[in-house]
């Protein structure tokens, strides 16, 4: 009966994952490998293609007749380039803020989460959301680039590296992490449980009532362990390897917050989305 409960929990979290997250790993991998019936994503590999594609950033569906619209930009001026970079950064922020809402909805669906102290719910989310967002990006990435805009656009890693500093340094650590993380070959059912484990971390600073959080996490951990054994019978020590990723994640998040602080100081026109601001304030 206990194993049945753990399987039911895994099923419940997977259903909530499908309900709340618009781009699953299964869909992302199909797009990246060209095995989808939809059109291939629009590729952004330089400033010109970013200008062509930017009107579709954060659109769930690109109107296909515009896909190869010719844009008369022979050379992009550097001040225009700065503007385009900032605009792109702002659309990344809007999508991130939307994704924070999605993670929050997912967290609320974890059995017992809404019964925790409200301050602790805020703390758990504050510390978990960027970690979860970084894990969510991994399936969208390969060594050459990343899907954005719900899989409508593929942006190359080289292009992201070519942006001006510190934008250029921002994504590289995420690519390095993702390429290694993807080698674990987790699927969407595994990811749903892993997200819940991350959210229910009882060691976040400032938690008021740790015991009920640890109890909830322990149950999800059992479910994850059982699920990984059944789903990946040939993958040795997968449970331990997945949990080890949580340590790497904390470093990436702390570096990310540092990048954003640098940006705030160096960019006069930078305004950070209020939700992201609230999350990053006094985070690390």
């Amino acid at each position: 009966p206990e194993a049945a409960d753990l399987r039911a929990l895994a099923k419940h979290l997977y259903e909530s994952y499908l309900k709340n997250f618009p781009l699953t790993k299964a869909k992302a991998r199909a797009i990246l490998s060209g095995k989808t019936s939809d059109n291939a994503p629009f590729v952004v590999h330089d400033m010109k293609s970013l200008l062509e594609g930017e009107q579709f950033i954060n659109c769930r569906q690109i109107p296909r007749q515009d896909h190869h619209r010719h844009l008369n930009v022979s050379s992009v001026q550097s001040d225009l380039q700065r503007e385009v970079e900032l605009r792109f950064f702002h659309s990344c922020q809007s999508r991130s803020a939307e994704a924070v809402s999605e993670v929050t909805e997912f967290a609320k669906s974890i059995p017992g989460f809404l019964n925790l102290d409200l301050n602790d719910q805020v703390t758990l989310l504050k510390y978990a959301v960027i970690e979860v967002l970084i894990i969510m990006m991994a399936p969208l990435m390969n060594k050459d680039g990343t899907l954005i805009s719900y899989g409508q656009i593929f942006m190359t890693r080289e292009f992201l590296k070519s942006l001006r500093k510190p934008f250029s340094d921002m994504m590289e650590p995420k690519f390095e992490f993702s390429v290694k993380f993807n080698m674990l070959e987790l699927d969407d059912t595994d990811m749903a449980l892993f997200f819940a484990v991350i959210i229910l971390s009882g060691d976040r600073p400032g938690l008021l009532n740790v015991k009920p959080i640890e109890d909830l996490q322990e149950n999800v951990l059992h479910s994850l362990e059982l699920h990984l054994k059944m789903n990946h019978p040939d993958s040795l020590h997968l449970f331990a390897k997945v949990l080890q990723k949580m340590t790497d994640l904390r470093q990436i998040v702390s570096d990310h917050v540092h990048f954003i602080q640098l940006l705030k100081e160096s960019e006069i026109n930078m305004c950070l989305h209020p939700l992201l601001q609230e999350i990053m304030k006094d985070l690390y």
């Binding site: 939307e98 809402s101 409200l118 301050n119 989310l125």
Partner: peptide, 20 residues
């Protein structure tokens, strides 16, 4: 803490899916 995280707090309290 909820005072310093008004949007997050609101998202948590919303009964319908959040619109950001």
């Amino acid at each position: 803490l909820t005072e310093r995280h008004k949007i997050l707090h609101r998202l948590l309290q919303d009964s319908s899916p959040a619109d950001g």
